[in-house]
C-alpha cells in the first residue's frame, strides 16, 4: 500500500510518473530527480533528497517552511527505517546532541523499536467504539541531557484543524511520576506526566495560526470589538491589544490551549486519574511531527533531568515505563475518545 501511495503522491503533483501504474521508485529507494524531493532541494522545502536523512545543524530545525507552504508539507517520502524490534523500549545513548532532533534524522534508522499495540479507550466515558490506529512504532534516544521519543503510525489523512465537529490528530507519551501509577492517566496519589503533541499546533507552527479566515476564506464580520486592524482582523493583532484581548476569553483566562503564539507544538501535562489532566505552566518539552505517505512521524523530546518535581524522573541507566496514546482526528477522536496502550518498559541506557 505504501508503494501505491507513493505513486499517487508523485502523480498528483504531475512530476513525471510514468503511466501504467508503475511507480518510479521502490520502497526504500529514492524518488527520481523530478520528484518533489528534488524540487524541495531548490528551496521550497530544504529536506535533502540525497540521503535518507534530513541534515540537521544541531539545535535548529532544518526543514524551512515558506509562508505560502501547503500543509501538510510536501515532503519527499523517504524510506522509514528502524533498528531491531524489541519488547522493551531502550533509549540508546549517543554522542550527538538530541536537542531538536528531526523526525527523519538518520540516527533513528538504527535505533531499536517497540511495536506498541493500541486499544480504543473503553474504560471511562466517553468511549471510543471503533479502533482506527491499531499500533504505533516507538523508538527512544538520549544524549545524557535530553531524551527523544519517535512515534510512527499510519493515518491516511492528516487532520490539523479544529472547528465545530472537526478534530485534530494528536499523540501523547505518558511517564509515571509516582511508581505504580495507573497507565490510565494515573490514579489519585499516582501521578503521571504527559507529553502531548497536536497536529493543530504543528500546523500553527508550520504554516501559521489557524484563524477563522484560514478555514473559512469568505468569512465576513461587521464587528470585532477593539480589533486594531482591518479585515480579516488577524487574531494575533487582537490578542496584542489589551481591549481586544478581553474578547479572547480562554486566552485571557490563561488557558494554554488558547495560545495564539505557541513556541512549540507540544505541551507538558500531569494527571492523577480521569478528568484531572492539568497543563503545566512551564514546558520544556518540544516536538516535531511530519506527515507523508499516509504516515505520521513524530518526535517528542524533553530534558532528561529537570528540577521540576512534576516532571517524571528519568536518568541514565534508569528503568521506568512509558505509555502512548494516538488520536485520529478524522475519525472524531478527541479527549477520552482515543487509542491508548498499556505501560511499556523503558530503559534509559547508561
Amino acid at each position: 500500500m505504501r508503494f501505491l501511495a507513493l505513486f499517487a503522491f508523485v502523480s498528483v503533483l504531475g512530476c513525471g510518473a510514468p503511466p501504467g501504474g508503475k511507480a518510479p521508485a521502490a520502497i526504500g529507494t529514492l524518488p527520481p530527480a523530478s520528484s518533489p524531493a528534488a524540487r524541495s532541494a531548490s528551496g521550497s522545502v530544504s529536506a535533502s533528497a540525497s540521503a535518507n536523512d534530513v541534515a540537521v545543524p544541531s539545535g535548529t530545525f532544518a526543514i524551512h517552511i515558506p509562508p505560502s507552504a501547503k500543509w501538510p508539507l510536501e515532503l519527499a517520502a523517504p524510506a522509514l527505517a528502524f533498528g531491531a524490534e524489541q519488547t522493551t523500549l531502550v533509549a540508546e545513548r549517543g554522542t550527538a546532541a538530541i536537542a531538536h532532533i528531526e523526525p527523519l534524522a538518520s540516527r533513528w534508522s538504527t535505533a531499536p523499536f517497540v511495536n506498541v499495540h493500541l486499544l480504543p479507550q473503553q474504560i471511562t466515558a466517553p468511549r471510543l467504539l471503533a479502533s482506527s490506529i491499531p499500533n504505533v512504532r516507538v523508538q527512544a534516544l538520549h544524549d545524557g541531557e535530553s531524551i527523544a521519543f519517535r512515534l510512527v503510525w499510519n493515518d491516511d489523512t492528516p487532520n490539523g484543524n479544529v472547528a465545530s465537529g472537526m478534530f485534530t490528530d494528536a499523540a501523547a507519551v505518558q511517564l509515571p511520576i509516582d511508581a505504580a501509577a495507573s497507565p490510565m492517566m494515573g490514579h489519585p496519589g499516582g501521578r503521571v506526566q504527559i507529553l502531548h503533541w497536536k497536529a493543530l499546533w504543528q500546523k500553527d507552527q508550520d504554516v501559521g495560526f489557524q484563524d477563522v479566515h484560514t478555514l473559512y476564506p469568505n468569512i465576513w464580520s461587521d464587528l470585532y470589538w477593539f480589533s486594531p486592524s482591518a479585515h480579516p482582523h488577524p487574531v494575533q493583532d487582537i490578542a496584542a491589544d489589551p481591549y481586544g484581548r478581553a474578547w479572547l476569553i480562554a486566552l485571557s483566562a490563561g488557558n494554554s490551549v488558547a495560545l495564539v503564539n505557541r513556541s512549540t507544538p507540544a505541551q507538558e501535562l500531569i494527571a492523577e486519574g480521569f478528568g484531572t489532566l492539568t497543563a503545566q505552566p512551564e514546558s520544556a518539552t518540544t516536538a516535531r511531527g511530519v506527515w507523508f505517505d499516509n504516515t505520521w512521524v513524530l518526535v517528542i523530546e524533553r530534558p532528561l533531568k529537570t528540577a521540576d518535581p512534576l516532571d517524571a524522573p528519568l536518568s541514565s541507566g534508569g528503568k521506568t515505563q512509558a505509555a502512548f496514546a494516538i488520536w485520529n482526528g478524522g475519525d472524531g477522536n478527541v479527549g477520552a475518545r482515543k487509542h491508548w496502550s498499556a505501560w511499556v518498559d523503558l530503559e534509559v541506557a547508561k
Binding site: 466517553p126 479544529v162 472547528a163 465545530s164 478534530f167 493543530l200 477563522v212 480562554a250 488557558n255 490551549v257
Partner: peptide, 22 residues
Amino acid sequence: GYQECIKACPYKKTFFNMVSRT
C-alpha cells in the same frame, strides 16, 4: 475543547470557538 458538551446539550446552547479552541 473536546466538544462533548456540544454533542450532549439537547438545546445546542454550547458552541465551539475555533480561535480559543474551547
